[in-house]
Amino acid sequence: MLIPHPLLGLRDAQEFTYLGDARLIDRPDPTAPDAEAAFCDYVFLRDNQAGAHRELWFHEQGDRSWLVVTRDTVTHEVLCAELARDVALSRARCSK
């Protein structure tokens, strides 16, 4: 597979390690009253969907960026790739 790195262009997937669902960016609030339940979901529960899936890839043999890659799990077509840092920062803004 080829991953369209937002800074470096198309890069072979062999340069990356895969983590999984991009929801891992949304770490629950540890001070919330239901923190334990929220963390339980966060750590253990994943949707296993056929179709567009946002997932985390680490450019380990590259620039060490974490990317959020949107990939169609049926066709392997990569629809979009963003720097996870940008995604995380925009989430933080939204939540404030």
């Binding site: 800074l7 470096l8 262009g9 620039d63 060490r64 960026s65 720097l83 840092r85």
Partner: peptide
Amino acid sequence: EPGRWVAWQGVAALCTGPDQ
């Protein structure tokens, strides 16, 4: 920029990642 290297009078720099 990302993906580039520049040299100047015995010193050089290459981009290794965002802001690095």
